[in-house]
Measured scan of single mutants.
Amino acid sequence: TTITITINGEELRIRGDHEEIHKILKAWEEDHNDEEIVRLIRELAER
C-alpha cells in the first residue's frame, strides 16, 4: 500500500503494510499533533 500525505507543504509518500498505514491514519483521526504524525511517517519512510 502506498499513500501520499502533504503536511505543512511537505509531501510524504509512505509505503507500508495495512497495519502500518492504519496506525498513521488512526493517529491522525485521534487528532494527534502534526509533529507526532510526521515522526510516524518518517519512521516508515526510512525503512
Rank of each mutant, 00 (worst) to 15 (best):
I7Q: 01
E35F: 06
R42K: 14
I14P: 01
I7S: 01
V38Q: 12
E46W: 03
I24Q: 03
L40M: 09
T6A: 06
H32I: 09
I3W: 01
L25K: 08
A45G: 05
R42M: 10
I3V: 11
I41R: 00
T1A: 12
I24D: 00
E36P: 03
L44F: 04
E11I: 14
E29S: 08
I24V: 04
A45Q: 09
E19W: 07
L25R: 14
R15D: 10
K26F: 05
H32F: 10
I7H: 02
E29M: 13
D31G: 14
E19H: 11
I5Y: 00
T2Y: 12
I41T: 01
I24E: 00
L12P: 00
L25N: 02
I14S: 01
A45I: 15
L12I: 13
I7P: 00
I5H: 00
G16R: 02
E46G: 06
K23Y: 03
A27G: 08
R39A: 09
I24T: 02
E35I: 11
L44T: 02
T1R: 08
L25F: 04
E19L: 08
G9E: 04
T6M: 14
I14F: 05
L12G: 00
D34R: 11
L40S: 07
E36M: 10
I21F: 04
D34A: 15
D17I: 06
N8I: 02
T4F: 05
L40G: 02
E11G: 04
E35P: 15
E36G: 07
T6G: 02
T2L: 14
N33Y: 15
K26R: 12
E20S: 14
D17P: 13
V38Y: 04
L44C: 02
H22D: 14
H32V: 10
L25S: 03
W28G: 01
T6Y: 08
N33E: 10
I5F: 02
I41Y: 00
L40R: 14
R47E: 09
A27D: 05
E36N: 15
E46T: 09
E46P: 02
G16I: 08
V38G: 07
H22L: 13
E19M: 08
D31A: 11
I41E: 00
I41Q: 00
G16V: 07
I41S: 01
A27H: 09
H22G: 08
E43Q: 13
D31T: 10
I5P: 00
T4L: 09
D31W: 11
L40K: 15
I5C: 02
H18N: 11
I21K: 00
E46M: 05
E46Q: 08
E30T: 13
I3L: 05
K23G: 08
I37N: 04
I14M: 04
E10W: 03
H18C: 14
W28H: 03
D17Q: 10
G9N: 08
E20L: 15
E10P: 01
V38S: 05
E11P: 05
T2D: 09
R13F: 13
I21Q: 00
R13V: 15
R15N: 14
E29A: 06
E46F: 03
T1H: 15
A45K: 05
R15K: 10
N33H: 14
I7R: 02
I3K: 05
T2G: 05
G9H: 04
R47I: 14
E35L: 11
A45H: 09
L12M: 09
E20Y: 12
E20M: 13
R15W: 15
R39F: 02
N8H: 08
G9I: 03
H18M: 12
R15L: 13
G16W: 05
N33S: 11
T4W: 03
T4A: 07
E30N: 12
D34F: 15
E46A: 12
I14A: 03
I24W: 03
E11S: 12
L12E: 01
I5N: 00
A45R: 05
E20N: 06
R39G: 06
G9T: 03
E19C: 06
D34T: 10
I24H: 02
E30Q: 10
T2S: 09
H18K: 11
E29R: 04
R39Q: 09
G16H: 03
H22Q: 09
L12D: 00
H32W: 11
V38H: 10
N8T: 03
H22S: 11
E35A: 13
L40T: 08
E30A: 13
I7Y: 02
E30M: 07
D31S: 12
W28I: 07
I24P: 00
E36L: 12
I21E: 00
E30W: 05
E36D: 13
D34P: 11
N8K: 06
V38R: 07
D31I: 06
E11W: 04
G9Q: 03
G16N: 04
K26G: 05
R15M: 15
T4G: 03
E29F: 13
D31C: 08
T1D: 09
I37S: 02
D34V: 14
E46H: 05
W28V: 03
H32D: 08
T6R: 13
R13P: 05
K23S: 06
N8A: 08
A27E: 07
L40F: 02
I21T: 03
E10I: 10
H22C: 13
R39C: 04
I3M: 05
I37K: 03
E10A: 06
N8D: 12
R13G: 04
D17F: 11
E11M: 11
T2M: 13
E46L: 05
R13W: 13
L44Q: 02
L12T: 04
I21S: 01
I5L: 04
E46N: 06
I3R: 14
E20R: 04
A27W: 10
R13C: 06
E11T: 13
G9M: 03
E35R: 06
A45L: 13
E43K: 08
I14K: 00
I37G: 01
L25G: 02
E19S: 10
E43T: 05
H32L: 11
R42D: 03
E20W: 12
D34M: 15
H32Y: 08
N8E: 06
W28Y: 09
I41P: 00
E43N: 07
W28Q: 02
E43C: 06
T4R: 09
E10C: 14
L25E: 02
E29D: 09
R13H: 14
K23A: 11
T1F: 09
L12R: 04
E35K: 09
E30F: 06
E35Y: 06
E36W: 13
E19N: 11
V38C: 04
R47L: 10
E20C: 03
E10M: 05
I21P: 00
R39N: 09
R13A: 07
H22K: 13
I7N: 01
I37R: 02
I14Y: 02
T2K: 05
G9D: 05
E30C: 03
H32T: 11
E11R: 10
H22M: 10
I14V: 07
A45P: 01
E43W: 02
E11N: 13
R39E: 07
W28E: 00
A27I: 10
E19I: 11
V38E: 09
E46D: 11
V38F: 04
N8M: 09
R39T: 04
I7G: 00
T1E: 14
R47M: 11
K26H: 13
E10T: 07
V38N: 06
W28N: 01
L44S: 02
T2F: 13
R15T: 15
H18W: 13
G9R: 02
K23V: 06
R39M: 04
D34E: 11
L40I: 14
I24R: 02
I5V: 10
V38K: 13
W28C: 03
D34L: 15
I41W: 00
T4C: 08
E19Y: 07
E36A: 14
E36K: 10
R42Y: 05
T4N: 05
I37T: 10
I5M: 02
A27P: 01
E11F: 07
E10V: 13
T2E: 15
I37W: 04
I5A: 01
R15Y: 14
A45C: 07
R47Y: 03
E20I: 12
H22W: 05
E36Q: 10
E30I: 08
E11Y: 05
E36S: 09
G9W: 03
E43M: 11
V38A: 06
R47T: 10
A27V: 07
K23R: 12
G9V: 01
W28L: 14
E36V: 11
I14H: 01
R42S: 07
K23L: 10
K26L: 14
E11Q: 15
I3T: 05
K23F: 04
E11D: 10
R42E: 07
I5T: 01
H32K: 15
E29T: 09
L12H: 12
E10H: 07
E19K: 14
G16T: 07
H18T: 13
L12F: 14
I37P: 00
E36T: 09
E19D: 14
L44D: 01
E19G: 07
T4S: 11
H18V: 10
I24Y: 02
R42Q: 12
I5S: 00
R42V: 07
E43R: 05
T1K: 15
H22I: 09
E35S: 12
E11V: 12
A45D: 05
E43I: 08
E30V: 11
R13M: 15
H32A: 12
T4I: 14
I21N: 01
K23I: 07
H32C: 02
E11K: 15
K23H: 08
R15E: 14
N8C: 07
K23C: 02
I7C: 06
G16E: 03
R47V: 09
G16F: 05
I3S: 02
R15Q: 15
H32S: 11
R13Y: 13
I5G: 00
E43P: 00
I3H: 07
K23D: 11
D34C: 14
D17C: 05
N8F: 07
E46I: 06
K26W: 04
T1G: 09
E36C: 03
N33V: 15
E20H: 07
G16A: 12
A45N: 13
T6K: 13
L44K: 01
E29V: 08
I24L: 14
I7E: 00
R15C: 12
